[in-house]
Simulated assay, not measured.
Amino acid sequence: MRITLVQGDITQQHVDAVVNAANSSLMGGGGVDGAIHRRGGPAILEECRMLRASRYGRGLPVGQAVATTAGDLPARWVIHAVGPVHSRTEDRSHLLASCYREALRVADEVGAATVALPAVSAGIYGWPVEDAARIAVATVRSARTRVAEARFVLFTPDVHAAFRRALEAAGPSDEEIAARLAAQPEERWRALFACADALTPADLEVSWRGGQELEPGVIQMPYPVYGEAVQRILGLLGELGAVVVFGWPDWVRGNPLWPDGRGLDDAPVADAARLATAIIRGERFSDGTIEQALDRGAFRAVLRRLRRWFDEERPATG
C-alpha cells in the first residue's frame, strides 16, 4: 500500500472512499464531519439515520467504522470512524489506532482501492497533533489491507508537516523495502535458503543459561542460547537488508503478524522484512524474543515469505 500526504480539502478528493472523523451520533457535526455532510448532501445523513434506526441505536462506538454512500462527493463511499477525545489521565491510543484499522477494514469490505483519511481526533477532540500523526501513520503502515493508496488529507500546513515528519520516521515504504531486497546479490539469497532448507528440529531448540548466583546477592540474568544454524540465518537476514530501519515498536503494537506471523504468506514481502526486524531487535536484551518466534512459527513464516518472493515475485535482473 502506498501512503501519500496532501494538504487540502478532503471533500474534494477523487477517491473510492473518504473517511469521515465522525461523532457517535452519525448525525453530522463540526470540522471534517460537518464539511463532509454539507458537501455530500442529504443522502449521507439519510443513510446515517437508517444505521441509527437499525444497527447503531446507541450510536457508533468509539474506535469503530461504518460505510454509507458518499452522496454528492467525488467518491463512492464515506467511511464514518469515531475517534476518541484525548485524555491526559487515560491512554486511549488504542482507540485512535482502531479508527484507522477499522476504516481500512471497511474499505476492504466495500472494495475501495483508494482512501482519503483525515487527522482523526486532532481537531476539536484535542489530540496532540504530533502524537496523532505518529499513531495514524504507524497504524495505516502496519494494516493488513487490499487498499492500494491511503491518502492523508490534512487541512493546515502545521498538521501536514506533522504527518510528513511521522511518515519519514516510520521508515521506508513497501516499495522501497522490496527494491532494497531486490538489489541484494543472488548468492546471499541462495545462502539463506540453503541454511533454511538444512534446518532440523534440533536446530530450533533453545537452551537457557545463567540464573546462577555469581556472588552473594548477585544473580546472573538468564539468557537464551540459539543454535549455530539459527544464528547464521539471522546474520544473513541482516546482510540481505531485511533488517530495515523503521519504528518497529509501533509496527508491532496491535499488528496481527506479531508474534506468530500468521497471514504473512499473503502480505507484502516488506512485512517479512519488518517482522524480521522486530524479531531481531526485540532480542536486544536476550529476553527470548527469537525463541518465541521459533516456537510460534514467525521465524519460519519470514523465511517462507522471502522464499516465495525470491522464486515468484522478485524483479528480473540483468
Rank of each mutant, 00 (worst) to 15 (best):
E168R: 14
D174M: 07
G227Q: 13
T156Y: 03
F152K: 07
A178E: 15
V230D: 02
V225H: 11
L167H: 12
T145K: 08
G123M: 03
V137I: 15
V106Y: 04
D197L: 01
L181H: 12
E168A: 15
Y226R: 10
D203V: 05
T156G: 05
P157W: 07
L199E: 08
R144S: 12
A116S: 04
A150R: 09
A148S: 14
G111V: 01
A122L: 00
A132K: 00
F152G: 04
A166L: 10
R209G: 14
P216V: 11
R134K: 10
D203C: 04
R105Y: 04
F193S: 10
R144K: 12
T200V: 07
E175C: 05
E149N: 13
D158L: 10
H160L: 14
P157N: 09
L214F: 03
V106S: 03
V225K: 06
D158N: 13
D131C: 00
Y100R: 06
I135V: 14
C195F: 05
I219N: 07
D131N: 08
V129C: 04
P201Y: 05
A112G: 05
T156C: 03
T156I: 06
R164M: 07
T200M: 06
L167R: 15
T114C: 00
L204K: 15
V140C: 10
P172K: 09
G217M: 08
E176Q: 15
R165A: 15
G126C: 01
V225A: 11
A202S: 11
V159I: 13
V218C: 06
A113D: 03
L117G: 01
V230F: 00
I124F: 09
Y100E: 08
Y226E: 09
C99N: 03
A150H: 08
E149C: 08
V206N: 09
A150Q: 11
A182S: 15
I124Y: 09
M221K: 15
A161T: 13
Y100P: 02
R144D: 12
Q212F: 12
D131I: 00
S121N: 00
A136W: 02
R164T: 15
L181M: 12
V206W: 06
G111L: 01
P157V: 11
T114K: 01
L181C: 11
A133P: 00
S121P: 01
L192F: 02
R188S: 11
E149P: 11
I124V: 15
F193D: 12
A198C: 06
F152I: 03
A138R: 10
L154D: 04
R151E: 10
G211D: 06
A169Y: 09
G210L: 01
R165L: 13
P128M: 04
I177Q: 10
L154P: 08
L204Y: 00
A113E: 12
L214P: 04
L204P: 00
A132F: 02
E168I: 12
V218S: 08
P201M: 05
L117I: 01
F152N: 04
Q220T: 02
G111I: 03
V140N: 06
R141S: 13
R101Y: 04
A229I: 02
I124L: 14
V218A: 13
F152Y: 02
E215Q: 14
G126D: 00
A107Q: 01
P201K: 05
P222A: 11
P128Q: 04
E130H: 10
A183N: 12
A150W: 05
D158C: 06
A198P: 07
V129S: 05
L104I: 09
